[in-house]
Design a protein around this nucleic acid. Structure first.
Length: 390
DNA sequence: AATACGGGGGC
DNA sequence: GCCCCAGTATT
């Protein structure tokens, strides 16, 4: 640190003056700015953009208006209101934390930093953001937007994923904290990163910090913050599986609840069986069921961050009525109409919900679903459907 | 220190 | 297609 840190007080003053005029003052979690609402917004906003969060936030809050109602709700229902947002561990942690707050703090969201940090799903940045915004406490944050703003303004090079770089950024974030207006300051920093100080084309001409921003002064906004080092061209693995859509006499689908950890943890989904396996044997082993009149559908392609999944839907009727005693209970299961699924009766992975909606909806002459809300999945060229014969 | 975890949106 | 996005937990 050879260069002196420019005046921190001036940094906050300029940022707040900009925020008063150009910042966001109308976000749903700002009115009222209670700890519960801020907490919920911060968790939803982890790795998820504001525009995607807002409708989920409103819906969630409509069903769980306060912390106690969330703690009292069954986990199943919490997952339903989260389905489609992704990163489902966030919802499980949120629910567990609500129950922990009831147990440890009598239902009142704690205002002590260590107590907040101890709750599941809340890390260093989220704890600071909640307490700063809900109570005006003086804590630093460091989310993706703030990393960008500070790396540029202070000229901190290197990829923020590296510990040493992250520590510099945290130190910078703490050093710049003002003495007052912490709630607005925190929001202002995030707003600046989300608007003017964007990743691609920052609008430095309008930025209140440009006068002493090192990246701007040195023409390095494109290089800061540093990018993640190029991974060794590891082609994303492609996985394929059967999606067994078994219908009973009423047209209801068999659903399994997926294990808590891993992909789509805790969500409901028709049985998924690896393409290399014998799907009929797997279905019988798991549920004691056999299918007749099996037909395939266009594959469903879904991209995860670390692999691509292609699901081959296999639709069939139960070969005989499902005798209650024949249904194995080893795997949690349920029966639902496709129309119920698209109506959000259970928590489904987003691509499965779209598939159910297509199956339930009337189709027009082009064979496309008539519902405008349905988005067609991204599709690789000419997907091949293997033979379901086994 | 590295990896897992989802889905939407920009370009 | 590819990359990014208001991170945390786990290994």
């Amino acid at each position: 640190m050879s260069l002196p840190m420019p005046d921190a007080d001036s940094f906050a003053r300029r940022l707040l003056a900009w925020f008063d005029v150009h910042g966001r003052h109308d976000l749903p979690w700002q009115h009222p700015r209670t700890a519960y609402r801020v907490w919920l917004s911060e968790v939803m906003l982890q790795q998820t953009q504001v525009a995607a969060v807002i409708p989920y936030f409103e819906r969630f809050l409509g069903r769980f208006p306060d912390l106690r109602s969330l703690a009292a709700a069954p986990g199943e229902e919490v997952m339903r209101y989260w389905a489609g947002l992704g990163y489902y561990a966030r919802a499980r942690n949120l629910h567990a934390a609500a129950r922990a707050v009831v147990e440890r703090h009598g239902g009142e969201f704690p205002s002590d930093y260590a107590a907040v940090l101890a709750l599941p799903g809340i890390g260093r940045s989220t704890a600071g953001a909640i307490l700063a915004q809900a109570h005006g406490q003086r804590h630093a944050i460091l989310d993706g937007n703030v990393k960008r703003v500070l790396a540029r303004w202070a000229g901190i090079a290197g990829w923020p994923g590296e510990t040493a770089v992250a520590e510099q950024l945290w130190a910078c974030s703490e050093r710049l904290l003002p003495a007052t207006r912490l709630a607005d300051y925190t929001q202002a920093l995030m707003d600046l990163g989300a608007s003017l100080c964007s990743a691609r084309k920052p609008r430095c001409g309008d930025c209140p910090l440009a006068a002493d921003c090192r990246a701007h002064l040195e023409g390095r906004t494109a290089e800061l913050p540093g990018a993640k080092p190029k991974a060794k061209k590891k082609a994303r693995p492609q996985r394929e599986a059967w999606l067994i859509v078994a219908s009973d006499a009423q047209g209801r689908w068999l659903l399994e609840q997926r294990p808590g950890a891993g992909i789509w943890g805790g969500l409901w989904c028709p049985p998924v069986v690896d393409l290399a396996e014998d799907w009929a044997a797997a279905l019988y082993q798991r549920h004691g069921l056999r299918l007749a009149a099996v037909q395939t559908d266009t594959p469903i392609d879904h991209a995860f961050s670390h692999y691509d999944l292609r699901l081959h839907p296999l639709r069939g009727r139960l070969a005989e009525p499902a005798a209650a005693e024949a249904l194995r209970e080893s795997v949690p299961h349920a029966w639902h109409q496709p129309a119920e699924l698209s109506a959000g009766v259970v928590a489904l992975p987003a691509p499965i919900a779209r598939y159910a909606e297509r199956q339930a909806a009337p189709t027009d002459l082009l064979g496309q679903t008539a519902l405008a809300s349905v988005r067609r999945p991204r599709r690789r060229a000419a997907p091949k459907t293997p033979s379901p014969a086994s």
